[in-house]
Simulated assay, not measured.
Amino acid sequence: MVCVRGNTERSRGEHILGVNGIGRHVKCYARRQVINNGELYLSEYPPYYTNCPTNKEHVKCDICNNFIPDTDGTVRYCKNSFWGQKYCPSHENDGTSSCCSCKRLQASAGMEFILLEDGRRLCPECSSFKIMDINDCQPLILEIQQFFATLNMKLDQKIPLALVASETLNKPSEDKDNIIIYPELKGCAQQYGAPFPLLLTGSILAHEMMHAWLHLEGYPNLSKPVEEGICEVVAHMWLKSKINVGSETAMAAASLSSSLQPGRSKKHEQLSEIEKKLGECFIHQIETNKSKDYRNGFKKGIRAVSRYGLKKTLDCIKLYRTFPV
Rank of each mutant, 00 (worst) to 15 (best):
G84W: 05
Q33T: 11
R32A: 12
E57R: 14
N55M: 09
E57K: 13
S97Y: 08
A30R: 14
G73N: 06
C99K: 02
L105Y: 13
T74R: 02
E112L: 14
P47D: 02
D72L: 15
C52M: 09
H91I: 03
D94C: 06
S90F: 13
S101L: 07
E92V: 12
V34P: 13
E57M: 13
C52Q: 06
V26H: 03
N66K: 15
N55V: 03
A30W: 14
Y77E: 03
V59R: 05
Q106Y: 05
K103C: 10
P89M: 11
H91T: 01
G84P: 07
T50N: 15
D72W: 10
G73Q: 07
Y49G: 04
D94H: 03
I68S: 01
C28S: 02
C100P: 00
E39T: 01
K86V: 12
T96F: 01
Y48E: 04
Q106V: 00
S43C: 08
F67M: 06
F82E: 03
Q85D: 05
C64V: 15
G119M: 04
K60M: 13
N37F: 15
I114F: 05
C99N: 03
N55Y: 10
F67C: 02
D72Y: 14
D70H: 14
H91D: 03
G38S: 03
Q33D: 13
N80C: 12
F113L: 01
P53A: 08
L42F: 13
L42N: 09
Q85G: 07
N65T: 14
G110I: 06
L105D: 05
K60N: 06
R32H: 11
C61R: 02
F67N: 02
N37I: 10
Y77V: 02
E117M: 04
F67Y: 15
T74P: 00
C61I: 09
Q33K: 15
H58Y: 09
S98C: 12
T54A: 09
E117Q: 11
N80Q: 15
K60Q: 11
N36Q: 15
Q85I: 12
R32G: 11
R32S: 13
R76H: 12
Y45P: 00
T71C: 03
T74D: 10
P53D: 09
Y48P: 04
Y45V: 08
I114C: 00
A30P: 07
I35Y: 06
L40M: 15
K86S: 02
H91V: 05
R104H: 03
H58K: 15
Q33C: 10
Q85F: 09
P46Y: 03
S101H: 04
S97C: 05
S97N: 08
D118H: 00
Y29L: 06
K79D: 09
D94V: 02
N93T: 07
S97P: 00
C52G: 03
G73Y: 08
S101F: 08
C99M: 08
T96C: 00
P89W: 10
C61V: 09
G84F: 02
V26E: 04
D118G: 11
P53K: 09
Y29G: 05
K86Q: 11
N51A: 01
V26K: 01
I114K: 10
L115D: 08
T54G: 11
G73R: 12
D62N: 14
I35S: 04
R120C: 00
